[in-house]
Design a protein around this nucleic acid. Structure first.
Lengths: 133, 133
DNA sequence: CGGAATCCTCAGCGATACTG
DNA sequence: CAGTATCGCTGAGGATTCCG
């Protein structure tokens, strides 16, 4: 979105095509497995591949590699290769990735205050809330 | 998940299994199509099914129904059925859903300030950043 | 160790048609 | 209008094997 010369401030409330300005962020930051990865790197600092693999249970090496590549490409994660024997690779949050911290904090806060509301709503819905229509 | 009596305050920094406290929120709020739907309802207020369908381009009625049901079940969206001819159904953000507003605002803000950084990182990566190792 | 390559499965979505 | 039902398919992800 850098080369947008003179578009009349397309606002989400007027432009149907931009119905959701947060979707791009969601695709980048909250796509499958990316939140655990980013959180892990954010909470535990620089880590090796296996550390991440063990920490994020049930993720397969293939998918972990895919997601790390994606995050590296998006500039959120920095990959450092140490040409040793055995080889060693370390991943860490980039500076850009660190700008997500307040966002993550706010989400975590929302979780602690509202997640049980969701749980309750689900139970209520499952018991008697089936839609009529 | 409901029968967990007396778990010793499992903290994300000590419990590997809870590697990511924000994942549940991501599953609820940022799963496929949910962000455009919530945003649409948030930005344009109460809307009928077809309005949402037209606003969120390329979504099929089937999937829109699925997502709306899910959001209703999670207590983020309220569905109102008007038994008229022709039938009329309206959807709106619930009170719980409205608590997401600051979150969405912050994400939108992150988008405006950092999305082009991501774009640049991608170009840089695609040009010369292929990982060695 | 940190992957890449290969094969395979299956949930989710699209397309279409039909209903109250 | 506001969905439901059915079918077919695609592609993300799992399992396995191999390599520098």
């Amino acid at each position: 979105m850098a080369g947008e010369t003179s578009r009349p401030a397309a606002d989400a409330t007027t432009d149907p095509e931009l119905a959701c300005p947060i979707s791009p962020v969601v695709d980048i930051v909250f796509s499958r497995w990316t939140s655990p990865i980013l959180w892990s790197l954010h909470a535990f600092g620089r880590q090796r591949f296996v550390e991440l693999e063990r920490r994020i249970e049930k993720i397969t090496p293939k998918v972990l590699t895919q997601r790390l590549r994606q995050l590296e490409r998006d500039g959120l994660v920095v990959r450092t290769y140490h040409p040793e024997v055995p080889p060693r690779v370390e991943y860490e949050i980039s500076e850009l990735g660190r700008t997500l911290s307040p966002l993550f904090a706010q989400i975590a806060e929302w979780a602690t205050t509202n997640l049980d509301h969701v749980e309750r709503a689900r139970r209520h819905y499952d018991e008697a809330g089936a839609p009529r229509g």
